[in-house]
Design a binder for these strands. Structure first.
Length: 107
DNA sequence: GCCATGGCTAGTA
DNA sequence: GCCATGGCTAGTA
């Protein structure tokens, strides 16, 4: 199953998110070459996570929130992130200043 | 036509 | 809460 370049880059990028960090849908899309294709990232996660064994839980929305449909899935994502040391505020948000993956920085 | 987005506005308190 | 966005798939001809 060969993939389109954009999708292949998205998959590769998601794989690269380090443990203990998160990325945003829009951020991954931008790194893959199209800042407006945030929903494609969602689509890739939805359709490829299992087969590609992606660290799907490390992708959240621009507000640092989990946006999965079902409560069951939301809880699983939250648990996986907390197990990696990511902290949620009382209102269920992740501090992106602290936990956002920024491939460029040397810190 | 689907999708796990994002950005901007309207409308309430 | 609305709706533009865009890569991809399913399903028809």
């Amino acid at each position: 199953m060969s993939r389109q370049p954009f999708t292949a880059r998205v998959i590769e990028l998601i794989r690269t998110i380090p443990k203990g960090k998160v990325a945003t849908y829009g951020g991954i899309a931008a790194m893959a070459g199209n800042p407006r294709a945030a929903r494609q990232v969602a689509r890739v996660l939805y359709s490829c996570s299992e087969v590609e064994r992606l660290p799907w839980h490390r992708v959240v929305n621009r507000e640092g929130r989990i946006v999965l449909k079902t409560e069951w899935n939301q809880m699983e994502q939250e648990e996986r992130l907390e197990r990696e040391g990511i902290v949620f505020s009382g209102s269920g948000r992740i501090d992106l200043e602290r936990f956002l993956w920024q491939p460029g920085n040397t810190v």
